[in-house]
Design a binder for these strands. Sequence first.
DNA 1: AGCACGCCGACT
DNA 2: GTCGGCGTGCTC
Length: 735
Amino acid sequence: MPNCDASHTSVLQVAIAVPLPRLFDYLPAEADSGQDYLPGIRLWVPFGRSRKVGVLVAVQSGSAIERQRLKRVEQAIDTQPLLSTQDLQLLQWASRYYHHPIGEVMLTAFPVQLRHGKMAEFSQAFGYALTQEGERAAETCTRAPKQLALLKRLQAGRQVVTAAELAQDRPLLKVLLQKGWVHRLPVPDNLAFSVDMAPALAPNPAQQQAIDAVSAQLGRFSVFLLQGVTGSGKTEVYMQIMAKVLALGLQVLVLLPEITLTPQLEQRFRQRFATGIVCFHSKLSDGERTRAWLTFQRGQAGIMLGTRSALFTPMPKPGLIILDEEHDSSFKQQDGFRFSARDVAVARGKLLHIPVLLGSATPSLESLFNVRQQRYRLLELPGRAGAAEQPNMQILDIRNHYLQAGLSEGLLQAMRAKLQQGQQVLLFLNRRGYAPVQICHACGWVARCRFCDANLVIHAAENRLRCHHCGASYVLTRQCPACKTGEMRALGAGTERIEQELVALFPEHTVVRLDRDSTQRKGTLETYLQQINAGAADIILGTQMLAKGHHFPNVTLAALLDIDSGLFSIDFRSSEKLAQLIVQVAGRAGRGEQRGTVILQTRHPQHPLLSILLQAGYSAYVEELLNERRQAGLPPYTHHALLRADAKQAAAAQGFLAAVRAWTQQNQLSAVQVLGPVPAPMSRRAGQFRFQLLLQSPNRKALHGLLDRLVQHIDGLEGAKQVHWSLDVDPADLS
DNA sequence: AGCACGCCGACT
DNA sequence: GTCGGCGTGCTC
């Protein structure tokens, strides 16, 4: 074991968060400091003219750098490693796979405070428990329901409930502390992972089969794809498997695509499991994130529930990784270190010898392809649990039909019928704002962004025009700035306009709009969701966020207002995305006793996507898409890496990529196809011209071999300094 | 990425 | 005469 004694020959290999594809060698702090240089500790190191936090990756006996050029470590931050050997291995693998600098990859494993060198020993983890008076109050305090709920939670809990778990209840906790009902005490190091299975439902045969299949593989690497429509009981399967893992004293990492989905799942887990549960996502403060990370890293919580950024949290007692809604594109990081949380989760499971459970109603083509290749095992949950039936899907041909702000008469009729029966209606449109185009009625001039290759979107409530790509915004004018006489008009409809229209059309009904604009303030979304589930909303209108996992038990009609843009996109993944969207929105309708109806407004009722999807179902449609992908030589049958470049001058970005192309043609094997450079689909954004070069190969090894050499030489290529470039391995979209 | 060095315009 | 613009070069 390469450690300590600070011998004269030890060289410390340190990862530092700089965009350079290498580790840096240092000498130990002092010959006799007595520090154990264990890989996985953090260090303060002198770097250039400043000091930085580094992670010790390995201790070697020598260095390729001359001895006298090596600096000494300033100080070790940790006495015990924060990252295990396996964590370091995973991060090194990810750095190589995504061709992203090792230091930046290593430091993304840490929450911000720890990345900046904050001591990890700073706090003994504290938690809370009821005092004797608190126990009494839990029986008598019936007039303050919120306080009572918290008391009950602490009472139901174990000896101590950790501070991180109570993050959301801080203000209330303070009140209880003041009353002397609750006291604060250190969390014991080995918090028992006791499990309460009392409320578990009896699984149906398909659920039982899935539970058994995964349970049989505990302690071994295996990937499962759990496919089940909304309401088929995936969460129950997760929880019953989790219970087995927790009972073994092992930890579970649960990943979700969106923060908005964490509270409801957290609540279900808390009702079910008596183990420590920590959440990790971007809505938490830096301090809360540090506490949650350390709690899990120390093995003091059995469950971590988080988003993509939680993936690398150290897991001292690894048992299981669950990744729900695995098809969701937000698992792919879209900037910097562009990793896929789904693919890295699988790599992590392999490294840790634990099962990985991917779940979705609409699995990605990649995962279904992996099932075909027998790399993943498919577990299917047919049908819906309980009485709910599959919704009735209807195509509504809107050719030559008058649309009132995007709503056809046929749809309005269906809405009236449902509303009269006191049921809820859900309308989906992936376009926020009032209208996507502002045009001059006299001269045809269209308001465009000065910095992007995009139209400005009208936001009527704010009286502004906004660019959805760079954030630029302008006051709305009635008169055309070009011809100075014409009147500006709104063309097309976004959610804001449709909301207005609905309020006018259905004055006796309540409309709730859910999109990024209407839910900006913290907690608004939760308030709306509660309002909807309390039956205080009749028509629910929204964008993307509606399609993701929320329960709306009283919705019996769901409609997609405009699917045509998804049918005719240049992106080869758009038909996959649209099919997923349709099935996901359909999953929002009719979860209760009532059978739901789904209406798709389209001008292409004969489109093969729609007929196959509606008649044969999602799985059959995926088969069709996979055949198309195979014939076209597209992923998952080939592998992609996308080199993007942007610059103030279009010629600089294009020229640089042309130089890269020339370089690849001298250096590559014929196994890699080079396509481009071409302008990006959004050719200008925030004032920068954007170009891209696509590398495609059926042979992943050949592609990665080329990328290895490319990233080494790229900075030396012509024009590299004038552009900003980035490499995206397995890009989720080519924009 | 930081951070410093370096060589040309408008200011107390 | 200086403050400061950001080009480019380096980091064990």
